[in-house]
Design a protein around this nucleic acid. Structure first.
Lengths: 242, 242
DNA sequence: CGATTACTTGAGGCCTGTCAATGATGGTGG
DNA sequence: CCACCATCATTGACAGGCCTCAAGTAATCG
């Protein structure tokens, strides 16, 4: 049984921009259904096209690219509210893969409807472009962190950003947020080795700055974490939901 | 005197997708004029909005972000055909700066017309989204290079990509392309120190693989360069011109 | 001709990667 | 229920790629 857009659990979060009635009507038409995937499922694969587009309703995933020599680069995370498959829909094929880390529920759209979206609903088309531009902005920020920051600053930055984002999703409980990824995933996202990432996390834990263990992240000393990250934390902005 | 879109020198390049008559009509309306800027000119500034959008007609520039501690990260280059100011137009403010490296000529558009673009010309709106998604793809690729590759591979990759792109612009002459940037710019784009970048370039030059000096780049041994870069070079795809 | 900017080269050290081994945890099948 | 296996986290030792510091050359410009 699929949820009506009107009752979408994400809609009520302040993180997301409100829908206009026209937006809502279009999204109802656009929506095909919902699916549920298990950890490890490949949702989209680099180099392939896709007849479907997705919005994450719950659960978490990973976006990554694979280099010729077999190395993996994590280029982002897939969290509730994120839109997946834009590359396939807009330029014809995915340039990165998306895989589920936890159980996930995805809202499914038909990519053939993208054209009618642009033709019939300019406000939705604008929202879609906003999503693309925001991802571009995020990637440029990550790039800056990889290019300019030390290992400890990178890790501190990543933990901080993750914590804020999940808090905005209201997924925190008892001052901690779920963090179901492996240390290896974070290492591959930050351009560090697994071993060094582990040691850096140990340091943060021993210093009582940030504690990530057993799938949960808590931040006893946010100020210290910010100082280590060395980047002014930008407040999360309202973003469109697709 | 400003050029009519119909006579735009970029239009004829195979790198760019053709305009439909409707596209052309809209762009004529959208276009305000042209400006010419000198080396060093700040075209767009991080953190500010902009009432103008630009397409590079000629010349080269640099996109960069500045971190809290004053370091600079080059997040891209601005080459003929590139669209500047999308962030300001779509999310309200630039998240990186753009500055001219050489003399440049820019085609100027009013950003207030963006809305009517989405309302009146879906095909142009789609093209705009394609531009955004392509930049996102490029950034993810750069991220992968910074995250996974050694200094020599990064430099080799960057030179190769630059060479191909400028070739597609038909800016090469005598087997070399203009490369007006400083070594420092490349260092800041690849997350390397200036000194190490310099030594890496020296190696490539001494080995007769790639020679960048006095503002020109030539590649005597493209295969060796590709091997060093360790990434299968993707052919440049046709892209929309805005 | 001094000042400025960019490029070049050498020396030394640290941050981070690699290698290797051990624990911890959970799932599976006999 | 336990042995076995796979996956992930942890820790130590060591080496090396890259950064920093420093100084010198070359080219451009007023």
């Amino acid at each position: 049984m699929t949820t009506k857009c009107k009752n979408c659990p994400l809609r009520s979060l302040p993180l997301f921009k409100p829908f206009s009635p026209a937006d809502e009507r279009f999204m109802e038409k656009f929506k095909i259904g919902e699916i549920r995937v298990n950890p490890g499922t490949q949702i989209l694969r680099e180099g392939t096209s896709s007849p479907k587009l997705y919005t994450v309703l719950s659960g978490m995933g990973l976006r990554h690219k694979v280099t010729e020599d077999g190395n993996r680069q994590v280029v982002g995370f897939a969290l509730p509210g994120d839109f997946l498959g834009l590359e396939a829909g807009i330029v014809g094929e995915m340039r990165h893969s998306v895989e589920a880390t936890t159980d996930m529920v995805l809202c499914v759209f038909g990519s053939s409807a993208l054209w009618s979206l642009f033709r019939e609903t300019p406000s939705r088309a604008f929202a879609l472009t906003q999503v693309a531009v925001r991802e571009e902005i995020l990637l440029a920020e990550v790039l800056t962190v990889l290019g300019q920051k030390s290992a400890i600053a990178r890790v501190a930055w990543a933990l901080r950003r993750f914590y804020d984002r999940l808090n905005a999703m209201e997924l925190s409980s008892n001052g901690r947020v779920p963090m179901p990824y492996r240390q290896q995933d974070m290492a591959e996202g930050l351009g560090l080795s697994l071993v060094h990432t582990n040691k850096t996390l140990s340091t943060l834990r021993a210093d009582g700055v940030a504690i990530w263990e057993k799938g949960w992240l808590s931040i006893p000393d946010p100020d210290a974490l910010d100082r280590l990250a060395g980047i002014s934390r930008e407040p999360l902005e309202e973003r469109p939901l697709i």
